[in-house]
Computed example of a mutant assay.
Amino acid sequence: MKNLFDVNGKVAVVTGGSRGIGAMIARGFVENGVKTYITARREEELQATVSELAQIGQCIGIPSDLSTMDGVIAFAAAVSAAEEKVHILVNNAGTTWGADIDVFPESGWDKTMDLNVKSLFFLTQKLLPALRSASAKDDPARVINIGSINGLTHPHMNNYAYSASKAAVHHLTRHLGADLAPQGVNVNAIAPGFFPSKMTAHLLDHESEMGALFPCGRLGNAEDVAGTAIYLSARASAWLTGQTIALDGGAVAASG
């Protein structure tokens, strides 16, 4: 049982890997010997993260726009051309939109659903051959979908499309987890609570006060999410599929 959390030598793909939770997970993989491909739409930001992580281990950047089917197909083709086997796919790329219900636009709804749900499903579909090839009898390939506690409880914000999309991600995780496990691919999700990121930067002026509101007394950090992703990618979680882990410092448990 000494190597239950060993991921050294695996190949991972992390979407939205240039910043925020995606970059935290990518760093955790790279530091633990995983050859990690990251993608993002902004090439300059992507290459900056690649340059940083490449000083630690193997990190390769492939720019892409996963908000369109053409972008999903092109990115999957680029990964498949480089790697016959992909052990880990982290579907992290996402977006949000906020507006009062009376004025919430169709464009904001479609943009959020297309990236958060549609692209996640079809990228998984396109990379299934590489995931199946990487599967071993006692250590399946893994898909890790990044959901949100906003998809588990009332978010108390006007991010209607975001909360609906993340609830869809959680249910899709359960559906795919059951369907793909017999094919050697386990699918699980992480539903993060409050982590410092560009998406939450406007809320960080009172970080310490916000952290005190959580049962664990602080906000999430890079080690928290990277450690959970490593667990979901390692032999330790080989019998876990279709599950969503609320990584939130106890926020959902305390929500009543």
Results as ranks from 00 to 15, higher is better:
95 T>Y: 06
142 R>S: 15
98 G>N: 03
79 V>D: 01
127 L>M: 09
69 M>R: 13
139 D>L: 10
98 G>Q: 10
104 F>W: 04
92 N>K: 01
124 T>Q: 10
149 I>Y: 05
149 I>H: 00
105 P>T: 10
114 D>K: 15
95 T>F: 10
146 I>R: 03
106 E>N: 06
137 K>W: 14
45 E>Q: 13
120 L>G: 06
113 M>F: 15
79 V>K: 00
66 L>S: 08
117 V>I: 08
56 I>R: 12
94 G>K: 02
84 E>N: 02
129 P>T: 12
56 I>P: 09
109 W>C: 05
118 K>A: 10
64 S>K: 04
93 A>R: 09
56 I>W: 11
142 R>E: 12
88 I>P: 03
53 L>D: 02
103 V>L: 00
134 A>Q: 08
140 P>A: 15
135 S>D: 13
124 T>A: 07
144 I>C: 06
55 Q>Y: 01
119 S>F: 10
146 I>Q: 01
126 K>C: 02
139 D>Y: 11
141 A>M: 13
109 W>A: 05
104 F>Q: 03
120 L>P: 00
130 A>V: 12
45 E>H: 07
137 K>L: 14
141 A>W: 12
116 N>H: 06
44 E>Q: 04
63 P>N: 14
131 L>M: 14
112 T>Y: 09
83 E>V: 02
105 P>I: 06
96 T>S: 13
124 T>W: 13
111 K>L: 13
108 G>C: 03
62 I>A: 09
54 A>N: 00
46 L>P: 05
126 K>I: 01
139 D>R: 05
92 N>S: 02
130 A>K: 02
134 A>K: 11
71 G>L: 01
91 N>M: 08
71 G>E: 00
51 S>N: 07
52 E>R: 09
102 D>G: 03
153 T>R: 02
52 E>V: 08
79 V>A: 06
63 P>Y: 14
46 L>Q: 07
85 K>T: 12
103 V>M: 10
58 Q>Y: 06
49 T>V: 07
78 A>L: 09
90 V>C: 04
123 L>R: 12
140 P>I: 14
148 S>M: 04
96 T>N: 12
80 S>L: 08
79 V>Y: 06
77 A>Y: 03
124 T>P: 01
118 K>T: 11
60 I>L: 10
134 A>M: 13
52 E>G: 08
88 I>C: 01
81 A>F: 12
132 R>Q: 15
76 A>E: 03
59 C>W: 03
99 A>G: 07
55 Q>T: 09
57 G>F: 08
47 Q>S: 14
106 E>P: 02
48 A>K: 09
142 R>H: 15
44 E>R: 12
147 G>L: 11
113 M>K: 12
125 Q>M: 04
103 V>A: 09
135 S>Y: 13
75 F>Y: 15
65 D>V: 14
141 A>H: 08
57 G>L: 05
104 F>E: 05
77 A>R: 10
114 D>S: 15
64 S>W: 11
114 D>I: 09
43 E>A: 13
98 G>A: 04
116 N>K: 10
61 G>F: 03
65 D>L: 13
138 D>V: 04
104 F>G: 05
41 R>F: 14
63 P>M: 15
102 D>R: 06
107 S>H: 02
146 I>L: 07
51 S>A: 04
57 G>Y: 05
111 K>I: 12
81 A>Y: 10
92 N>D: 09
83 E>L: 06
117 V>G: 00
49 T>N: 00
129 P>I: 08
82 A>D: 08
51 S>F: 02
88 I>F: 07
121 F>S: 05
